[in-house]
Design a protein around this nucleic acid. Structure first.
Lengths: 99, 99
DNA sequence: TTAGTAATTAGACAAGTGTCTAATTAAATG
DNA sequence: CATTTAATTAGACACTTGTCTAATTACTAA
């Protein structure tokens, strides 16, 4: 989880995840969308992968990256918990219950 | 949003938010829960405040900090979007709809 | 005013991070 | 094999970050 939060702290990496939202892409596909060298992009991929936010598979000369939503879900769960029951300011209402 | 993600990247700060989950606390209350000097804690408060993740108010000699959930909601919205419609792997199912 | 308490601000410093260029690995192709 | 293409790894470097001690501000109370 800590690695995930650290990985998400960089806007380039969040953008990469956004691009992977609608399907896997190659390292080259992703790299050409940013004003940054390929090695820099490669570094971001490795940070995302180490945080388990993406998966990768090689196909010939290319490497395909895909979003791994399981860790994103953990982050969301953490955020939901933060806004949960005990805090009166939360938007999440408990269902019914008398009085 | 970027400031929020950066703020959330540190585990001490996430813990602080967790403590504020069930109500506001003074700087001192919070500080004594961590093995860290008060100035260091003060620094974390300022980062959280700058990211709008907490609010503060002075009452006499003490400063009370409280969780501000609005930015947490933005983060959650971002995460939800990442797992949204276009990604076949998402857990979020669209309701009904023919075929 | 002086003393005491709560908290922050200032400044220093080691460790971590994001970026680059150069070199390297891995695979396809002549 | 030698070349080309896709991508990573290695190493350097400036900038940022988390922590500390020392000093300062803000408030309370005698």
């Amino acid at each position: 989880m800590n690695k995930a939060f650290k990985a998400l702290a960089d806007s380039t990496r969040r953008e990469i995840l956004g691009l992977l939202r609608d399907g896997e892409k190659t390292a080259g596909d992703l790299a050409e969308r940013f004003d940054m060298t390929k090695p820099s992009m490669s570094h971001h991929f490795s940070v995302l992968k180490d945080a388990d936010l993406i998966t990768s598979r090689r196909e010939g000369q290319q490497i395909w990256y895909a979003l791994n939503t399981t860790v994103v879900q953990d982050v969301l769960a953490w955020g939901m918990d933060l806004m949960g029951e005990n805090n009166p300011k939360t938007l999440v209402k408990k269902s019914g219950g008398k009085s």
